[in-house]
């Protein structure tokens, strides 16, 4: 029975690799507007969990439904189209294209959906304004600070107004000041209704931004807490 306001519904998800089990019958539901932080030691399966929800990897068994799409039923093209509109991703190392300016990196996500270059840039400028990096729009990634790069990555992730924002160690490669800025940004986004899933080692990030904390160990949910934001 599917939860009506569930953005993510994972049921008995198992992921086996040749020499290990990354997820072992994990079930998880994330509702719209939630900010969920996933924590756990290295190798606990948290990145695999994120990959399953992003459609970057397929479970060995079990089902993953995101925003009404059963990812197991989609082929590679279907998964790509799902990622285009259904989710936005933020990575630890930003993963911006060095060849493109900050603005073009962000506009690219919309252009892939068929949006014209002009409209995509207008939307990107809007996001640059909201994220406070308008003055850096024509700069290339190599010339940006870590915090600025992550803000650009956030803008790119939000470009197509995704139902779910996935963040994989979003502050892991940042200094403390830049990390603070990114945390504030994610908090603001969730407070205006953006559903958020964070995978992090950083307890401060989790407690500050998340409304629910899930601890993963050995491919299972070991503990789950509701959080009061600091």
């Amino acid at each position: 029975m599917q939860n009506a306001d569930a953005v993510v519904e994972m049921t008995n998800v198992r992921k086996e690799y040749s020499d290990s089990i990354a997820l072992d019958g994990l079930s998880l539901t994330i509702r719209a507007g939630e900010a969920v932080a996933v924590m756990g030691p290295s190798g606990s399966g948290k990145s695999t969990l994120l990959n399953m929800i992003a459609g970057l990897d397929r479970p060995t068994s079990g089902s993953v439904v995101v925003h009404g799409s059963d990812l197991g039923a989609l082929d590679e093209t279907g998964l790509a189209l799902f990622r285009r509109r259904g989710i936005g991703m933020i990575f630890q190392f930003f993963n911006l294209l060095d060849d493109l300016s900050a603005l073009d990196n962000v506009a690219l996500a919309a252009q892939l959906t068929g949006t014209s270059a002009g409209q995509a840039r207008a939307r990107a400028l809007e996001l640059f304004g909201e994220l406070g990096i308008s003055n850096r729009k024509n700069v290339y990634p190599a010339q940006l600070s870590g915090g600025e790069r992550q803000r650009v990555a956030v803008a790119r992730a939000l470009m197509n107004r995704p139902a779910l924002l996935l963040a994989d160690e979003p502050t892991g490669a940042l200094d403390s000041r830049s990390g603070e800025q990114v945390m504030d940004l994610l908090l603001d986004l969730n407070q205006i209704g953006q559903t958020l899933l964070l995978v992090t080692h950083d307890g401060r990030l989790a407690t500050r931004c998340a409304t629910r904390l899930i601890e993963v160990a050995d491919g299972r949910i070991a503990r789950e807490h509701s959080l009061e934001r600091a």
């Binding site: 992003a54 970057l56 590679e76 093209t77 790509a80 189209l81 799902f82 990622r83 285009r84 509109r85 936005g88 991703m89 990575f91 993963n95 911006l96 294209l97 060095d98 690219l108 996500a109 892939l112 959906t113 790119r156 992730a157 197509n160």
Partner: peptide, 13 residues
């Protein structure tokens, strides 16, 4: 890495 990123934001194979 760039190709992986492009696929992650919705570029089809």
């Amino acid at each position: 890495r760039d190709l992986g990123m492009l696929k992650s934001i919705g570029m089809t194979p």
